[in-house]
Design a protein around this nucleic acid. Sequence first.
DNA 1: CGTTGAACCTGTTTGC
DNA 2: TGCAAACAGGTTCAAC
Length: 301
Amino acid sequence: MPELPEVETVCRSLRPLLAGRRILRVEMGKTDFVDNPGEIAELAPGCAIGSVQRHGKFLELMLERAEANQSPLSLFVHLGMTGRLRVCDKEDEVAAHTHIVFGLNDARELRYTDPRRFGRMALVRRAERETILGKLGAEPLEITKADFCERIAKRRARIKALLLDQSVLRGIGNIYADESLWRARIHPMRLGAHLRRDEIAHLRSAVQKILSEAIRLGGSSISDFVDAAGAPGEFQLRHRAYGREGKGCPRCGSAIKRAIVAGRSSFYCGKCQRAPRQKTRRKGQRQRKIKIAPKRLNRAA
DNA sequence: CGTTGAACCTGTTTGC
DNA sequence: TGCAAACAGGTTCAAC
């Protein structure tokens, strides 16, 4: 559920609800997805919530401590597959799988809910914050054409794998990788190093247009994504490839196909997105024999 | 370097 | 209808 547009949507909706609020208390249920639950319970109460930012798929809430001389802390939240962060009134019914509740000084609560617990949460100091951010690749909406080309053209991995790699670009997930590749007419199995420069440039603008439009529509709500106030997104209505196996390609009408690429279900148009040459050996098809230059070193004698 | 598959955990959908 | 298998927006790690 939560890729860059969804996390950005949550981030934007969280901001006005949390700005200037103070955390009064913390309640925790299951915490096996939290790096340091003890520190959160100990340090968060009393903190004021400062900026709310997104870094790829991570949300970062700056927590300013009561004592002015103490350095601020960063609460990192990754929503994983099913994580939700919502601001609710205290009286609102608590959803199943709500594991962490931050009580605020305005009779409301910031609640983290996550059935699968694939999400992550950690309260970190400056140094560790830099370590986390340092591992992330470029922000797709801000990357220059030159940087984008370099990050892709150097690599021999499949383009789908590269788009999903958070150390190459931060924030793209399975839906937006497929939607971007469809828009750019690039087959997910093509290798980064095999793409033409104009194809890479085209892919960059496709990624940026898809992500921007998805943010504008509040993200994709496939089964249950909602923003901090509980509102669903609408970009799922604009999916052209993702989840549309067997349906017509909106461009050429031929059926959308599905294959596993980079370990993930990948949807693409077999006609608009041309497959790379040979590549995968199909059943019954022989592997190409590789000619090895005869080395006859011991010939002498 | 790159790829693959499994693992993490629960809920929902699909197939026999 | 009922139960089991497959599948799900993510990341990480071992093995090859």
